[in-house]
């Protein structure tokens, strides 16, 4: 007997199979997110905003209200939506370029204002949609189309550590974590807590997900997984950084 893999109820069947490249981590992040939306029973009240870059391919991924915005501008669209209708559960879904480069002012200020939205940022160490250029999260020495000899930190600085930055500028009520598709159960628990934090009205919630890009990394399945599982966490520490549900000293 064969078993059909269970798709989250909130997924939109008409748009499956999805449009991401084989081996791309977006599908896994969105699966975890879909399951969380199901478990929280919020499908009818979620608004999902995606960016430009690979995340835009999620514009018809879920059976939830969805807007695909401009590069870096998902955060302000979701902010505006939430301010106008606080009953909507707002998810701003973006890549590392959108969150840490072209839209970094929005991420920083939404976090500083403690906007009651959830930002999910997929970190795959490069600008994938445009053909694999250096991103704020490209690791030192890593080759990309615009760092063909490897990222030289003397020239381009060190990779942005987003959750650490967001944690540093947020106050009470913010939830901040970094998960990885290499530990999907944990990532899912972070996403759930991030959404619960928004729904409780506590404050800004932010989850970075370490992810894969075999197309631009030019890696086979084994090396792709090794990179996300072993290499990326050396620089990007996985774990919860801020959780209002956990009191100091616990």
């Amino acid at each position: 007997m064969t078993t059909v893999p269970q798709m989250p109820k909130s997924w939109r069947l008409e748009s499956k199979p999805h449009k991401f490249c084989p081996g791309c981590g977006h599908g896994l992040v969105l699966k975890a997110l879909g399951e969380v939306i199901d478990e929280l029973g919020i499908q009818d009240r979620v608004a999902f905003g995606c960016d430009i870059g690979c995340s835009l391919l999620a514009w018809d991924f879920f059976n939830v209200d969805t807007v695909q915005t401009h590069h870096g501008r998902t955060t302000p669209v979701m902010t505006g939506l939430k301010r106008a209708n606080p009953d909507i559960v707002c998810i701003a879904y973006m890549g590392d370029g959108g969150g840490y480069a072209i839209g970094s002012q929005h991420l920083v200020n939404a976090a500083a204002r403690n906007e009651r939205i959830t930002a999910i940022l997929v970190n795959n160490c490069n600008y994938a949609m445009t053909g694999g250029q250096m991103a704020p999260t490209t690791l030192p020495g890593m080759k990309t189309e615009t760092t063909p000899y490897g990222r030289d930190v003397e020239q381009t600085g060190y990779p942005t550590q987003g959750p650490e930055m967001v944690a540093a500028i947020t106050r009470e009520g913010a939830y901040v974590a970094r998960g990885t598709i290499a530990n999907l159960k944990q990532l899912k628990s972070y996403l759930k807590k991030a959404l619960e934090n928004q729904m409780a009205g506590n404050g800004f919630s932010f989850v970075e997900a370490l992810s894969t890009c075999p197309t631009n990394w030019r890696t086979n399945a084994k090396d792709t997984w090794a990179f996300v599982e072993k290499e990326m966490p050396k620089y990007f520490k996985v774990g919860e950084i801020k959780n209002p549900a956990v009191k100091e000293g616990e």
Partner: peptide
């Protein structure tokens, strides 16, 4: 963009 979000909220 926040204005657009506000309009999307109706």
């Amino acid at each position: 963009f926040t204005t657009l979000g506000g309009v999307l909220a109706g």
